[in-house]
Simulated assay, not measured.
Amino acid sequence: MLRRELLGVRSRWTADDIREAGRELAERALELPELTRGRTVAAYVSVGSEPCTLALLDALRARGVRVLLPALLPDNDLDWGEYTGPDSLTQVEHLGKMALFEPSGTRLGPDAVTAADVVLLPGLAVDARGMRLGRGGGSYDRVLARLERADAHPRLVVLLYDTEVVARVPAEAHDRPVHAVVTPSGVRRFPLA
């Protein structure tokens, strides 16, 4: 029910609102020490009413950061490829799911994410504990489990709109808190992550 409510709010955003929020979000994110020091960042290309990530991806790349983007596999796991600019993206229709922008170059394998210094996560909300509510497909739960199995400890940062920082989201035993949330108006850190 919470997912439907949050998606309903997002559906009222205009394309201009989304672009402006994305520009502001990129400015805030680029101030993060994690992104200043990080050499490899796993990110994603926003779709629909998600906070726009393209300005952030291009700014990271301009800084010389290696940006990895996901490609959805048939089992909902994620493979990864390198972002080298807008021309390196292709729109992929996934049966029964939304169309996604994915890297068109060489696939690096699902374990490529374990080399990231920072993982930027999509979501619908985050709560005061740092628990992230995703869309429910489980793709990023698999990423987080893969990081744990590999004993990799990148900084986990979720990108959201201001209204999506809420008091509490449902969490299950496998859920892990994020280190920070970036919204158009600022950054909030979660020390228990």
Rank of each mutant, 00 (worst) to 15 (best):
L30C: 10
V169S: 06
Y83G: 11
F190I: 14
E164L: 00
V158I: 03
T163I: 13
Q91T: 02
Q91F: 02
A15C: 03
R39H: 09
G134F: 04
A55P: 12
L30P: 14
V126K: 04
H153P: 09
E27P: 11
A180D: 12
S46D: 05
T90K: 08
L69V: 07
P154I: 15
R146P: 05
L69R: 08
G48A: 13
V166G: 09
Q91R: 08
T36S: 10
L30Q: 13
R168N: 05
T90D: 05
V181W: 10
S11I: 00
G136Q: 02
G130H: 01
H174R: 05
D111G: 06
V118P: 07
E20N: 14
A71K: 08
V157F: 02
H153T: 13
V65G: 08
Q91H: 04
P110V: 03
A115G: 09
D117R: 04
L144R: 08
T40K: 03
L72N: 07
A171G: 14
A21L: 04
A125Y: 15
L121E: 10
L73W: 05
A29D: 15
R19F: 14
P86E: 07
D111R: 07
G38Q: 08
R63Q: 14
L159F: 04
V166Q: 13
L68T: 02
E172C: 09
A62Q: 07
A59G: 10
G81H: 00
A99P: 05
D87Q: 03
A43P: 00
L72W: 03
S185R: 11
G8R: 15
T90S: 06
R168D: 10
S185Q: 11
D17Y: 10
L144H: 09
V45T: 02
D151V: 12
L147N: 04
E50N: 11
V92T: 15
L54N: 13
R3E: 15
G38P: 03
D127T: 11
D17W: 09
L7N: 07
S185I: 13
P110E: 04
P191Y: 00
V158D: 15
A128F: 12
P86H: 02
V181F: 11
A99G: 09
P177L: 00
T163H: 09
A29S: 13
V113S: 03
V165M: 04
L32G: 12
T40C: 08
L147K: 03
E27S: 14
A180I: 12
N76M: 02
A167E: 13
R149P: 08
L133F: 02
R107F: 03
P33V: 04
A42H: 01
A145V: 12
R4C: 06
L160D: 08
A43N: 00
V126Q: 06
L54Q: 13
L54F: 10
A42K: 00
H174W: 07
D79L: 06
L120N: 04
H153Y: 07
L54I: 14
L68G: 03
P33R: 02
L156E: 10
L124A: 12
G22L: 12
